[in-house]
Write a protein that binds this DNA or RNA. Sequence first.
DNA 1: ATACATAATCGCAATATTGCAATATTACTA
DNA 2: TAGTAATATTGCAATATTGCGATTATGTAT
Lengths: 107, 107
Amino acid sequence: MGASKNSIHSNYCIEVAEIAKVFSHPARVAILLYISKEDTCICNDIVSEIGLSQATVSQHLEVINKAGIIRGTFKGNSKCYDINIERFKDLQVLLNSFFATTKANCC
Amino acid sequence: MGASKNSIHSNYCIEVAEIAKVFSHPARVAILLYISKEDTCICNDIVSEIGLSQATVSQHLEVINKAGIIRGTFKGNSKCYDINIERFKDLQVLLNSFFATTKANCC
DNA sequence: ATACATAATCGCAATATTGCAATATTACTA
DNA sequence: TAGTAATATTGCAATATTGCGATTATGTAT
């Protein structure tokens, strides 16, 4: 089908999966690492760094943005992206709660 | 395209993304939580619990298995799945290294 | 207002993922 | 060796994702 049968899953499972999906593409991981490393965070610099087209990078930025992990503000006609640390920490807590629950107890 | 341009990304980014992809579907999250909760971990019970067809569940189990997170052993003609804790912890460490590197420093 | 630079959106093509029915395989049992 | 129960694989249809060129929108400066 291509579409997940979300209705049969708990909200918790859906939420964990949605968070993980943000990090499930190497370009998005690279973008987040780049924004973290650089003091500038200019969108155009991200395009140069990542090696994908401007349109594609913009789409990946939108995915990360929709999850609330980054915020963009215009500086001149460039856009400057920054990590929303509070939100990012919240997502980490949720993922780590899932990790902590996952353990072996049989076989 | 549908295919990731992996060649332009670092191995680290690809690895983080591949791990995240395992957890990026609610059924796989639900399967891991179920295996963790139950003492039995019988494949058939997972099918009943998750609410997807046997074929679909088997495919999700294969994705998790390929990542090395679970191991299956036959008990009778049923298969019993268990978490590979060592591997799971390794993946956690890698993801957490990525989380720790991601921080705000501009804008 | 016009011109320029930069970023977002649209439309498309190619590939990936999800889901299931049908079939094949595996492990056990009589 | 059949027969049965349980799991894996195959083949297919439907939807999602990825990527990019072209276009549109946004912001700045002259």
